[in-house]
């Protein structure tokens, strides 16, 4: 990858990382979107979509209610798309594992960021209690800056892990195929479990089954 490509991936990872919580929340952080764009950046949009689809299954589990913890899939999806560049579609397992690992680390990084924000707010208590606009603005803008730094670091780590996995991880070709199948299987079950949860008191399994029937018919009739 060229320096320009790496810079574009880092920038996109920051955009996706910020979108997750701090700025806008327009869902460009969703793995389907983040990986598709990252796939375009690395020159393999097809694999970008495939890893984005697989990671999106996991992201369906996330209900970011209140201050709930959740994996940060944006930088993870960027790393997965970078790891998937030029790989046969049946052997995307390592790329998916990279994406999931970085998303999981992203979960911890958000907790660390929130603790940092809490410390900053405590240090600024006097100004905040007085309603001082400068203090309020500073706390708010520093929150954005720190989150941008967090997303940049996480994306850089992800690209490093993706590079290491592509070049140094001695995985047999058969193992990567099995890994792909297993990670897709876990993702599908995760998404299905979430669908049931969405309608917990209103026949969730029945609604899911209705949809499965429709999806099956779509495949048969197309």
């Amino acid at each position: 990858m060229s320096a320009l490509t790496i810079a574009a991936l880092l920038a996109w990872g920051v955009v996706a990382g910020l979108d997750f919580v701090s700025v806008l929340q327009a869902m460009v952080a969703r793995p389907l979107v983040a990986a598709t764009v990252a796939g375009v950046i690395v020159g393999d949009p097809g694999n970008g979509v495939l890893v984005g689809m697989a990671l999106e299954l996991y992201a369906l589990e996330v209900l970011p209610v209140g201050g709930a913890r959740s994996p940060d899939y944006g930088p993870g999806a960027v790393a997965a798309a970078a790891a998937a560049r030029g790989v046969p579609p049946a052997a995307l397992g390592v790329a998916l594992a990279v994406g999931l690992l970085i998303a999981h680390i992203g979960d911890w990084s958000i907790v660390a960021l929130r603790r940092r924000n809490t410390a900053r707010v405590r240090a600024a208590t006097a100004g905040l209690d007085a309603g001082d606009l400068r203090t309020i603005s500073r706390v708010q803008l520093l929150g954005i800056l720190w989150d941008a730094g967090r997303a940049l670091g996480l994306t850089a780590l992800g690209l490093g892990v993706a590079y290491a996995a592509r070049h140094w991880l001695p995985v047999a070709p058969r193992a990567t195929v099995l890994l792909t199948a297993v990670l897709v299987g876990v993702g599908l079950a995760t998404a299905a479990g979430n669908a049931v949860r969405l309608t917990a008191r209103r026949n969730g399994v029945a609604w899911l089954a209705l949809g499965l029937l429709g999806g099956g018919l779509w495949i048969v009739l197309r």
């Binding site: 495939l50 669908a195 309608t199 899911l208």
Partner: peptide, 26 residues
């Protein structure tokens, strides 16, 4: 319910697409 049905529709399509290149053992 709309979301649950939507996920149900998507899952077989995603399985077919992502599993399209896999063999029987996989």
């Amino acid at each position: 319910p709309v979301a649950a049905v939507g996920i149900g529709v998507a899952l077989p399509l995603v399985a077919a697409r992502l599993g399209g290149a896999l063999d029987v053992a996989a």
